[in-house]
Design a protein around this nucleic acid. Sequence first.
DNA 1: TTATATTTTTAGATTTGTCTAAATTATATT
DNA 2: AATATAATTTAGACAAATCTAAAAATATAA
Lengths: 222, 222
Amino acid sequence: MSFTTSEENYIKRIYHLQQETGLVNTNSLAAEMHTRAASVTDMLKKLKGKKLLQYEKYKGFKLNDAGKKAALDVIRKHRLWEYFLVEHLKFDWDKVHPIAEELEHISSEELVLRLDNFLGNPLFDPHGDPIPDKNGKIAVVKQQNLLQVPLKKNLSVSSVTNQTAQMLDMLRHYHISLGTQLMVLKQFEFDGSLEIKVIKQNACIISEQVAKNVFVYDVQEK
Amino acid sequence: MSFTTSEENYIKRIYHLQQETGLVNTNSLAAEMHTRAASVTDMLKKLKGKKLLQYEKYKGFKLNDAGKKAALDVIRKHRLWEYFLVEHLKFDWDKVHPIAEELEHISSEELVLRLDNFLGNPLFDPHGDPIPDKNGKIAVVKQQNLLQVPLKKNLSVSSVTNQTAQMLDMLRHYHISLGTQLMVLKQFEFDGSLEIKVIKQNACIISEQVAKNVFVYDVQEK
DNA sequence: TTATATTTTTAGATTTGTCTAAATTATATT
DNA sequence: AATATAATTTAGACAAATCTAAAAATATAA
């Protein structure tokens, strides 16, 4: 089954709304889509016709399993492209969303698979949101910042908050980027700074301020 | 000025046709676009309205300078994406066209610039077609295969014909891919095989059969 | 040069996704 | 429970891109 760009955008929005509220109603979807309630009703009929939606007139609606899978496919593509834009094309993380909104509608399944492999099958996008796998499964790995994590455990960098130019410059210097494997060796009581070991690099020291903005997950769990 | 996907597809086709025939006529464009002459006429009016086209009813048509620039922007994007798909996602070169047909319509100018830099500002796509720069300029560098090229000259691999799995496997072994810099050191009279030196690699020997399928251009000229 | 064939354009219909305005259903209030 | 208000759907229209069928312009051939 394939979908138009417009259908995919509706499906994706419905998915996000129903994560919060269970049943979704016409007006809130219209607001999210920056469109009118009448347009939403038209699309709901179409999606119900394609058997993606549980929908009774005037009663609210939600995606069924097929609809959820369709949504997760789009979300997966969106987040993989965001990862590519930030990690390889060096976009600022706050600039990538509108571009990923276009790229997520490119249809080739093989493209997505190869992109995923090229990126190293990341579990999180640069904003820290989880990337569904090709079956729609979302990893149940929790992210922690470097201050919350046990010593000498193999970890993988999943996302970085406070993405200022200064911060990114510093991380680049330490060879730390998304997917980088590292471990925390020691925390100094004096100032809270950490000694960390980046895989294939010498050990180095980062401040507590940096540490609390770097999020990682346990490589084993993957 | 921005264009719809459909407009861009027409503009691109007209460009290619007028490269061959000067003036383009309605029926041949309809055939290329797999559509009907009536649809072409409709679009011609639209493109003339946007001042991209020289067009007199019943007299044929061609792109003006603005139209050519628009076409070259689309062609540039198409070929950069093809390069990415082959060189980084390891697609077979004969599978990438339909995917690039979608990717070429992603609108972000910054994306194209960054993609171009990420790829190393290639002059040719994997089929050997030249990639226009952001001003629409096409390099006037000629490609030659390794048998046609002078000894000890710095060269850059621009394209590879006969892209069989076996051939690609062999090139991978020698660390030769698009953009690789190399020079030919010697040709052996006995069997025509070449000794070549890939930058940052030891010298190695390739057969004449391989050599005639590897195309390069002079790095100085770039 | 007149008739015939080909090419191109026009006229009008169709599909998708949108809109406004009006009608319908559900919810809240007194 | 009756009425007012809010949410939702229907009806009908519009723009973009396509189509078919018919008309108009151009090219070709006897």
